[in-house]
Design a protein around this nucleic acid. Sequence first.
DNA 1: CTGTTAGCGCTTTCAA
DNA 2: TTGAAAGCGCTAACAG
Lengths: 326, 326
Amino acid sequence: MKDVAAEAGVDTSLVSRLLNADQTLSVRPETEERVMAAVRRLAYRPNTAARTLKTARTMALGMVIPDLSNVIYAEIARGAGDRAAAAGYVLLISGAAAEVRTEILEDRVDGLLYAVATAQSVPDLDVPGAPPAILINRRGPASSPSVVVDDRAGVALATRYLLSLEHRRIAHVAGPQDVDTARRRRRGYVDAMTAAGLDVPAELTVESTFDEEGGAASTAALLRVTPRPTAIVAANSNAAVGAMAAVREAGLSVPQDVSVVGLHDIPHASYLNPALTTVRMPLAEMGGRAVDLLLGMIAGDPGGAVMVTTPPELIVRASCGPPAGR
Amino acid sequence: MKDVAAEAGVDTSLVSRLLNADQTLSVRPETEERVMAAVRRLAYRPNTAARTLKTARTMALGMVIPDLSNVIYAEIARGAGDRAAAAGYVLLISGAAAEVRTEILEDRVDGLLYAVATAQSVPDLDVPGAPPAILINRRGPASSPSVVVDDRAGVALATRYLLSLEHRRIAHVAGPQDVDTARRRRRGYVDAMTAAGLDVPAELTVESTFDEEGGAASTAALLRVTPRPTAIVAANSNAAVGAMAAVREAGLSVPQDVSVVGLHDIPHASYLNPALTTVRMPLAEMGGRAVDLLLGMIAGDPGGAVMVTTPPELIVRASCGPPAGR
DNA sequence: CTGTTAGCGCTTTCAA
DNA sequence: TTGAAAGCGCTAACAG
């Protein structure tokens, strides 16, 4: 910047105010032109570290995604990244779970988004000295800041669809019940069943992890129940993929013997065999809203627990049909 | 740091050298103890921006992944992140393709990893003033720094497996041929075919994108060729998923009518119907090697074009069988 | 064994 | 309309 100032024959402070579009400044147009020309000629780019040191703002937001291989985070990150960019921030993603790395991240961002879906320990938000942080797709203790989608409505929608197909023995491959997201999904299942006047026998809900392996294992267990369930609502689509595999493994077929629905419309869904019926959730929007909330907190707002209520959307494909014998 | 120094009754420079484990320093144990106690009591954490400003090193590495929804990048990033952490660096991932954001990233890292698999324009490496950068899973012009795996060997392995099953009319769903990775994969197919003394008719290779949709479209075209191919080697596993869908769409089945192999052992592979036979590539290792190379360049090394030669591994599942009529 | 000092590149208040 | 000056928090060369 010193070079630019010298080249333009002005003081560095003028260059700085020009570059930051300082409103309270009035410059002679020719001076401004001279400075801008120097900036271009020298290909000047401000030093982020110096700016950060001076202003105490990094203009970056961090997002922690322990499970980068789960594609739904790609969509959440896309929504978050776009919103951050619109506000002049960069979104920096860290794939690490390790608390150490999170601490290192903290020093480089003005705020933190935690996308931790599994039962992993919830990070301590509101650590003194650390930047504001919020949970994405998960709620924390009390009213700690968070943004979630309406999981309950999503799973209820899936379940109602199965009910409309005349299924009555509908099972639920539930997510880990120590995670609120999984609990809300389960509640959506129970809601829809009871609203239809049906019992919700305990043996038709099996808790599992959020992955294919968990979905397969719980489904295998479910298929041993008598009378056998005719349909399965999986807590997410990876588990649904596992569920379909388990149905085949048992010598049965989807959807003739067992129908399967998954939550989250993953890219593979329409290419599976059979194509997986899913419920699409507003994931990108959740990412965007999370950034809004975080930006508000950086500005001094208290935060809060947000739910994105954009209605889930049923994507009907081939993995569901009427129950056998109908 | 000033507070810590005051609390311990020493100078800040001593605190700094203690915290950075300065070897040339000898301290009285009791003094060190006093400083460390102060650090703990005040929960002191150094200011990254100030340190960066002073040392001109961020101790961060950036990784640009335009397509975060492609799970293979999760594995590459894991390998890169672990290696970076071992060297005392944080890996910061950006999901953005936009050049603007890349520029912003440049200011925050000591080096950049570009994981751009598709035909998107190759970023300018070696921009004056910008930190060193290398390409991952892709080669650039001339001998610009890059790290790739042995795609040619991977696809050749897949093709040889099909040959060992007695297939002769083996088709290739190729990736975009303006991407070197896709070209090398294609060469692997041609290698294996010619090594077996077979012709490689042009109509049995169809160029497509690296996703499910592309795989499905090219396979549909391939199935219209007469005589129809009995097996397909897909340039990656997402395309293979699309290929299997297209085979079914044509009223045929995998592997009875058409066998399918995919490159990259994605998590879904073993849960597909049928389970997808794949070739596992050393992706995490590629990420790690990329970090090694980049770290070397940061230290002043010239860089170079690296290929990870760890042998690809065939994962046999259910999507391949002998050709019909055998 | 420990302290002094200068300065990294920028922003911002105040003065001219 | 522009410049001077202080200082953000740290490191490193040098002095004591």
